[in-house]
């Protein structure tokens, strides 16, 4: 039986939502889903090589004033960083990470080498829409 397809539009570049995306991605990996992630505008900044999982360079989307407590709690609970979640999911199942060309350029990323090494390619928006149309599960975070 073919694996189910999971499409994620990843707009967010905030550490809390990226962590949530990583947890969701882990669930998809456990289910052996084929995953396509499309990194959109704000998300592209987090995937820049000089940002990645350096939490000091990432904002919180909610309860911004409680970032220190949030990060400390994640650490206590031994929760992986968002980038570790993404890397692990790629090791477990078929995960492709596609960078929206426009989003990359907005943050000064023009070629694959400008981004963390888990990004597979740079694509246009048509790829995202096609993938979302064919997916069994489609989320936008």
């Amino acid at each position: 039986m073919a694996n189910k397809k999971f499409c994620l539009g990843l707009f967010t570049g905030s550490v809390d939502k990226l962590t949530a995306a990583g947890v969701v991605l882990s669930g998809a990996a456990a289910m052996d889903m084929d995953v396509d992630i499309y990194v959109l505008l704000q998300g592209a900044r987090a995937f820049k090589k000089e940002i990645g999982d350096d939490a000091s360079k990432l904002n919180m989307s909610e309860n911004a004033e409680m970032k220190a407590e949030f990060m400390e709690s994640l650490k206590k609970l031994k929760v992986k960083t968002w980038l570790e979640f993404f890397r692990e999911a790629k090791e477990i199942t078929n995960v492709k990470i596609h960078m929206c060309g426009l989003a990359g350029k907005v943050w000064g990323g023009n070629v694959l080498e400008d981004f963390v090494d888990i990004v597979d390619d740079i694509v246009g928006i048509g790829s995202y829409i096609n993938s979302a149309a064919e997916a069994d599960v489609s989320l936008f975070i």
């Binding site: 947890v23 882990s26 669930g27 990996a29 456990a30 609970l77 031994k78 929760v79 692990e88 477990i92």
Partner: peptide
């Protein structure tokens, strides 16, 4: 036992 969700599920999967 040292991990929180989704750690145990991923451990089971592996």
């Amino acid at each position: 036992r040292g991990t929180s969700c989704p750690g145990p599920l991923l451990a089971a999967k592996k």
